[in-house]
Computed example of a mutant assay.
Amino acid sequence: MNFWDTVTGNDLTREWQAFEARAESLPAGHLAAWQEIKNRLFPHGDFTGRNLMPILDGVLGLLEEAAAEGRGAHEVLGDDIDGFCAALAGGEGARDHRDRWRERLNGNVAAKLGRLGG
């Protein structure tokens, strides 16, 4: 990966297209699980989503392996996809981008008010 690709996000685009091409070969149940997992993990991504790429690669590999072995997505992921995604993102109550932005905003406001009041 070169600097220009990193700055422009071209590397992420290529990687994302490769994920989607791999996912297209999954059976319908596995593909539905892939779509749901992506939707549940996106709020835990950073601005670019770069931090999610290794996680998504691992999940897609797990689904591909399960399909190759003839196991269903439900059998591999369990009943609780929300819990599965929370565990991948760092556990129950994992911080998402809204939490990080809220903390930054609150810190900035507190700093400004501290300067005005003192």
Rank of each mutant, 00 (worst) to 15 (best):
W4C: 01
L41H: 04
G78C: 06
G61Y: 06
H97A: 14
D82F: 03
E15W: 03
L63K: 00
E92I: 07
I55L: 11
N51F: 06
V7L: 15
K38L: 13
G93S: 09
D96N: 15
L31S: 14
T8I: 10
V59Q: 05
G72R: 10
N10A: 13
G83E: 05
G107C: 08
T8V: 11
R40F: 05
N51M: 08
L105C: 07
E65M: 09
A86W: 01
E103W: 11
G45I: 02
L60V: 03
D82T: 14
G70S: 09
A73Q: 01
L56M: 14
N2A: 09
E24A: 15
A68V: 04
E36A: 15
V109A: 12
W4N: 01
V7P: 00
S25V: 07
K38P: 00
N2C: 07
L105S: 09
R95K: 15
L116N: 01
N106K: 12
L116K: 10
M53I: 14
V59C: 11
E64Q: 13
T13I: 13
R50S: 15
E15M: 11
R95I: 02
W16D: 10
M1C: 04
G83Q: 05
S25N: 10
G61A: 08
A18G: 06
H30W: 04
V7F: 14
C85L: 02
V109K: 09
R40E: 11
H30Y: 05
G72I: 04
W4I: 14
G93L: 07
L52E: 04
G29M: 02
R98F: 15
A66C: 06
L77Y: 00
G93Y: 07
R102V: 06
K112A: 14
E92H: 07
R22M: 06
G91E: 03
N39M: 12
I81P: 00
Q35S: 12
L56E: 08
A67D: 05
M1K: 05
R104C: 03
L116E: 08
G114V: 08
A111G: 03
R95W: 04
G90I: 06
G78T: 03
R14P: 00
G117A: 10
A28I: 09
L113K: 09
L52N: 06
G9I: 01
C85P: 00
H74S: 12
L56F: 06
G9R: 01
E92S: 12
